[in-house]
Design a protein around this nucleic acid. Sequence first.
DNA 1: CGGGATCCTGACGCCTTCCTGACGTTCGCG
DNA 2: CGCGAACGTCAGGAAGGCGTCAGGATCCCG
Lengths: 237, 237
Amino acid sequence: MERIPGVLVVDDDLTVRRTLGMNLRARGYTPLYAATGEQALALAAEHRPDAVLLDLCLPSLGGLGVLRSLRVWSEAPVLVVSGDDAPATKVEALDAGADDYVTKPFSMGELFARLRSVMRRRAAPHPPPPPLVTADFTIDFRAERVTRQGRPVPLTPRQWRIVEVLAAEPGALVARDRLLREVWGPGYGTEHHYLRVFMSHIRRRLEPDPRRPRYFVTETGAGFRFLPGEPPGRDRR
Amino acid sequence: MERIPGVLVVDDDLTVRRTLGMNLRARGYTPLYAATGEQALALAAEHRPDAVLLDLCLPSLGGLGVLRSLRVWSEAPVLVVSGDDAPATKVEALDAGADDYVTKPFSMGELFARLRSVMRRRAAPHPPPPPLVTADFTIDFRAERVTRQGRPVPLTPRQWRIVEVLAAEPGALVARDRLLREVWGPGYGTEHHYLRVFMSHIRRRLEPDPRRPRYFVTETGAGFRFLPGEPPGRDRR
DNA sequence: CGGGATCCTGACGCCTTCCTGACGTTCGCG
DNA sequence: CGCGAACGTCAGGAAGGCGTCAGGATCCCG
């Protein structure tokens, strides 16, 4: 399942949204639309787009407000599109966390070249991590699935996300509230019960003995931990 | 070791090099200069700059040639500075691996904002404190656990917090009331008995001889102290 | 419109964690 | 040598977390 990159288009002008969306779709991206800052933040939290095209002229919150709010929890590349080409404005936006700044009018070719550039950069630090192999199953981050003896293990989207987040840092404790935020989105953090239910399902599918978890262990009162098969020899540094 | 960021300036015009260099120095960067493509590649290979300001109009090799050669082995952010603002040229440079493209004339403020933006992504996200290794166990702050001969030592949340606070300042005396506040929260400070009980549990799990504590020692009437193993020698870095 | 998959929610029994009090030990000091 | 204060250890009990199940809401797709 090769994920298609989603791009969030934030602009209060319907015509602009439509134009950008058409071009995005033509180039293989899946556009998401937001007309206001609030809408943009809600959509970003829910869909985790791979990039954001952000107009600075937005009602109420303002493009800069959206950018700053987004940067609290997201590292997604943000490309600012604005009619204002004053250096001071550019500096402000870039220092607020924008990855690039394009002034209208612009050429579509340039816009997409810049989009490719910022997405290339963001993708680079997290290259497809190599598959994680345990004695009982293999976690394939690139294909986004778990296989057991060659056969794929059916996991629901939420279940996969939990496995992915935990296995991204083998051995590390992932606090309950952090796990909730990473899987369910910002705004979550106290719904510990969700984790218990989903962990139960995950264990039933992956653990050799679901009663006594070996890979997905609970740290009571704290969070969860993924333990790859014991490499009992050395401790890393 | 607080490295000062080095920036390679590639331009065949001496005046431009000088202007950029002065501004770079004024903002705390250390400039390196190259007038030709060959020189640029040689300098980049030798000094590994943290960013590159690259003019496209270069003799022989050309700015694009430099960029492509650089990208074979380097991921350093490259900011192209050019007088050519044709979209086709921009697209070509960006797709060749450039991180940004600025057309002359430009404002210094904008240039440096863009430079900060591309360098920001290269910065280490979270420098984790290195694990603390003793003769008997290893305290892994990142994973939030203690391992003994490679095997994790089960600690309850409170127990871990106490170990974490004490081990954060090896050798230092941590007063009882401060420890209570840091672990139990503000509002605590007089419940010395809690500490005795928990310290007892911690020692049973970590000390080679719990009767005669070697790592977690009590300072009667004052507080506690974590003593890492022998080495008053020196720690690396 | 119907069926299936996914997710949220509540209920229940089990188990861990933490607080608490009691008791023995160590250490300093007169 | 005797006393008291602070410390270390142990066991019990309340509180809350955990794992599991089942029922209902929602959404997608044919």
